[in-house]
């Protein structure tokens, strides 16, 4: 039977020599085997901890070793002591310190200028050709408060559990009242550095011009994921904006949902439209009537707002 004293001394010796790697070794442990060398143990066999234990009423030394450690080599090193060894494999010990989790925002969820009562959709993230800011994109009437926003105005996002500020208004392409006509309803906001930007599905692979009958999808805050077809790429029409009157648009994309279901509904404004087969951005939803959905060409938006996806 190995004495408790001997196991204690060996435990201390191992702690000094192998766990803490300090010298000189513990005074009493030195009496066991001062000359014994553990230096041949490789880094992968580094011992994370040592303790004495009792197993089947016998005193044993428990060594916490790396999962990949070759225990036979280590066991050989301890043979001379005549103390039973028990190995406990571990991934390693680490402090339970945790940093505050970063807030994440995801495309396809509700977002708006802080002065709006309703919500649009956070369409996506784009690179700014004029700065190094991280930009989020939606409509002028969502982020830009329909021409009324000032730079750095608060942009809000609905997490589902509450409303947070994600950043500030950056710039928009102004909407012109009649008799002028408009090409796009688009604006961008900068996003705070401590917010993670997530795409709800796939990160887009650039942008592409719309084509008739192109199969497309979008993910909006109201109707979620829907698929449809482009039925027109050159619609000239009027759109009513609540509290701001009617505006004229040219060259809008018209999209019909599959099987008669709406492609988009109120709250989906700002959703990016993607070509289904390639995940390239085709347009951005800004209006509709429950059957027809209207989008601006994303190529035009990129050009006019000086951004790229």
């Amino acid at each position: 039977m190995v004495s408790d004293y001997k196991v204690s001394l060996l435990s201390n010796l191992v702690a000094k020599k192998l766990v803490w790697q300090s010298v000189p070794i513990f005074e009493k442990a030195a009496t066991l085997s001062e000359s014994y060398s553990f230096s041949s143990l490789k880094q992968s066999q580094k011992i994370w901890g040592v303790t004495k234990s009792i197993r089947d009423s016998e005193r044993v030394l428990e060594l916490f070793v790396p999962i990949q450690a070759d225990t036979s080599t280590i066991r050989d090193k301890f043979k001379k002591f005549g103390v039973p060894i028990k190995f406990i494999r571990t991934k390693g010990f680490e402090s339970y310190f945790a940093t505050k989790p970063r807030q994440s925002i995801t495309t396809g969820n509700p977002a708006r200028h802080f002065r709006l009562n309703g919500w649009g959709t956070l369409g996506g993230y784009v690179d700014d050709k004029l700065s190094n800011l991280r930009l989020a994109i939606s409509n002028n009437h969502v982020f830009g408060n329909l021409n009324r926003a000032s730079i750095n105005d608060r942009i809000e996002y609905d997490t589902g559990a509450g409303i947070i500020q994600i950043g500030g208004f950056r710039r928009m392409f102004p909407l012109l009242p009649p008799p002028d006509v408009n090409n796009v309803d688009a604006a961008v906001a900068w996003v705070k550095d401590d917010i993670n930007l997530k795409w709800i599905r796939k990160k887009p692979r650039g942008s592409i011009r719309p084509r008739l009958n192109m199969e497309v999808y979008k993910i909006g805050a109201t109707t979620g994921y829907t698929e449809g077809f482009i039925s027109s790429i050159a619609l000239n029409h009027r759109v009513k904006y609540h509290g701001a009157g009617i505006f004229n648009f040219v060259n809008s994309i018209v999209i019909l949902g599959k099987n008669g279901y709406p492609f988009s509904l109120p709250g989906d404004s700002g959703s990016l439209v993607f070509k289904k087969s390639t995940h390239e951005a085709v347009g951005m939803i800004f209006a509709g009537d429950g059957t027809y959905s209207f989008a601006n060409s994303f190529k035009n938006i990129e050009s006019l707002l000086q951004i790229s996806i």
Binding site: I200, R201, T223, G224, E227, K258, Y261
Partner: peptide, 23 residues
């Protein structure tokens, strides 16, 4: 997961209630 099931197979409504697909 839209890589595991085709959009067309997913019901767009059930007993008059609209379904919303979240990828």
């Amino acid at each position: 997961n839209l890589d595991e099931i085709d959009y067309d197979e997913i019901p767009k409504q059930y007993k008059g209630v609209r379904t919303i697909i979240k990828p």
